[in-house]
Design a protein around this nucleic acid. Sequence first.
DNA 1: GTATCCTGTAAAGAGACGCATTACAAATCA
DNA 2: TGATTTGTAATGCGTCTCTTTACAGGATAC
Lengths: 95, 95
Amino acid sequence: MRMHNPPHPGEILKEDVLPELGLTVGAFAAHLGITRPHLSNLLNQHAGITAEMDIRLSEALGQPPGLWIRMQAAYDLWQAEQQPRQHIAPLHVAA
Amino acid sequence: MRMHNPPHPGEILKEDVLPELGLTVGAFAAHLGITRPHLSNLLNQHAGITAEMDIRLSEALGQPPGLWIRMQAAYDLWQAEQQPRQHIAPLHVAA
DNA sequence: GTATCCTGTAAAGAGACGCATTACAAATCA
DNA sequence: TGATTTGTAATGCGTCTCTTTACAGGATAC
């Protein structure tokens, strides 16, 4: 049923990645080439992961690109699904 | 090596989905609850698929949500990878 | 061959978001 | 106590989604 709300990427970065790296937020931000306030916003789920940011993370963490942007997409989709909306009728293929 | 550029979702919608539905762009837009110019922009790759739009498409097309937003993420990531950028050194785990 | 429909696209504007810069206050820690 | 680290706010710029309105070109039908 796939019904568990996916985490914001920032949560994983803050709780798992950063501790394992043993870096301060400021040091990690500097390494990524972004500002400390912005990384803080990422970590605290006040900003999302862009494709650009995904690449930087994948390079810094030695991972194949796409992990973080897919997490973000899953998060965004879940959030949008929680919004009240009027449903759309399914279409059928033409005769 | 995973090195083939992923299509923009609009391309698939325009070339595969719309013809199979047998709908005009205007009719499809109306069904989705968006404007015709905006759907035209989607189809011609001048705008991206948002989480909101993914949900509308998945409902209209009878698909599980996430297909289109993941296509968009793959597309965005590929585009970002094509941009010239300065690489970031990999970090090692703390001692 | 004229009228209708469909299409792509442009302009203008609202609202949201990414990201930078700067700044400050609270918390941690030496 | 003093230095470091952190979260966050304000401001601003650029970009993007999406709407409304409009227009011009192509296709279809009479």
